[in-house]
Design a protein around this nucleic acid. Structure first.
Lengths: 252, 252
DNA sequence: GTCACGCTTCCGCTGGGCGGAAGGATCGGG
DNA sequence: CCCGATCCTTCCGCCCAGCGGAAGCGTGAC
């Protein structure tokens, strides 16, 4: 009756996945004990497996003993076909917009009830931004998020509106009714905007990207920029984003 | 005497690493049998393990049955601290250079006898480029590569020069003596350049990035751009790259 | 039909993996 | 200096999870 208790039904491969999955945006480095805890593994097990992953380069051990994701994982992860076609098609347009505005430019898709940022260009003049490539944020407090949500299937909109909207800044829209009105407006206008709803001093605009050229084609992504203020230039910004979005859609 | 023969000394975790490691730039999708072969696993073993990795999201299975790297690996890989400080410091300068030149801008480090590209901005006007973020190329046929090699420790230079230099285009420098002279020249000039040595119609310039402000400080990375031609503007390009490199070094 | 090829499933043997427990290493408080 | 707390590392014996040969399918070429 000694030793082995390992929850039945778990395989080693699953444990490896659990170990890697223990890392996320808010946990980029973990001590052995936290790693074991988050992965749901006994400490010696985590120690041995993590050691093997370090040997394989998937994890890395810092001098202070903490584990971080290894370079090998980065290498391999970059091979994943994450919206490859979309990114290839969008890249030149993102560059154009950046060159014209020097503002942070985002390309994002909806994943469930979150925005997933798949590409970003950030300029030095820009406000400090929370999002990086690979990060996920709520749909209700970013320009691209609202643009995606506005054109999402009814059940998604329902799901977002029915749960409490997380307040991120004092200006975050947390009343479902207000958000719903903004979304309807965004559909009519062809763009969505936020004013300091995600981070202080940052405003954003997002426009939908439709596959193909039809005005009612499926929305597959959103394009957006973050600027210090929307008081001036809003319509010019929106116009250039919309032109780019159409260009991207055409080449999808 | 049936069943199990699995090379003794291999653990499941190592097999998982082998499976993930079977993917590289030239093998972004693999059929089960090739995956098994490249990972050195028996076919049923690869089948089962790959299935578990698919369930865990580290791999993905396309409709045609081929395995590709999964989005989860991408997510997790992006958490890896790959030259994080360098990239953060360099990002605004890369943007500036891009905005000024509209050429493809690269940030790269040396890893052994290869260049590892850690950041890139590519414009629509640019020549089609081989490198992407995460890719590795030889040191002898790119601008950043030569810049890194020129300032690398003697044993690295030795190692590169003593092995045959891979010919990539008709213009690739493959004679060790010529390359050595170019490297010495690059040290004197403070920049290195290539003319169609990596791909036809593409010239590149690379400058070293030194940690700190001292003129003889350690070279930790290189900054470069790729342009269709170097005939005009070479000195202006070099000058702006050098200014940016100093700026990056200052903030490291 | 027949063959070839690649994927999937089955199954019995066994050694790789498990975690409790003991042993270190490090730190800070008394 | 000792002692407890906390975390990491190593050891070890039990046992079942994992292995792969072999058989079964599905598909496509000729």
């Amino acid at each position: 009756m000694a030793g082995n208790t390992a929850q039945p039904g778990t395989t080693v491969a699953q444990r490896v996945v659990a170990l890697l999955g223990a890392f996320d945006d808010r946990h980029r480095s973990l001590t052995l004990s936290r790693l074991a805890e988050r992965a749901g593994l006994a400490l010696p097990t985590a120690h041995r497996l993590a050691g093997e992953l370090v040997a394989g380069g998937l994890l890395q051990r810092r001098d202070d003993g903490a584990y971080v994701v290894g370079r090998r994982t980065w290498d391999i992860g970059l091979l994943a076909p994450v919206q490859t076609d979309l990114r290839r098609a969008a890249s030149p347009f993102l560059q154009d917009i950046y060159a014209a505005t020097l503002a942070t430019v985002h390309l994002a898709v909806r994943e469930g009830t979150e925005v997933l940022y798949v590409e970003r260009i950030s300029g030095r003049a820009s406000v400090p931004i929370v999002s990086t490539v690979g990060s996920r944020l709520p749909l209700h407090c970013t320009g691209v998020g609202k643009a995606l949500l506005a054109h999402a299937p009814p059940d998604v909109r329902e799901a977002v509106l029915s749960r409490p909207l997380r307040r991120v800044t004092p200006y975050t829209v947390v009343q479902p009714g207000t958000l719903a009105r903004q979304l309807d407006q965004a559909v009519r206008d062809g763009y969505a905007s936020t004013v300091e709803e995600m981070s202080a001093g940052a405003c954003s605009v997002g426009v939908p990207i439709r596959r193909g050229t039809a005005d009612d084609a499926e929305v597959v992504a959103a394009l957006g920029i973050v600027v210090p203020s929307l008081k001036r230039d809003r319509s010019r910004l929106v116009a250039s984003l919309q032109v780019a979005a159409r260009g991207i859609g055409r080449s999808l």
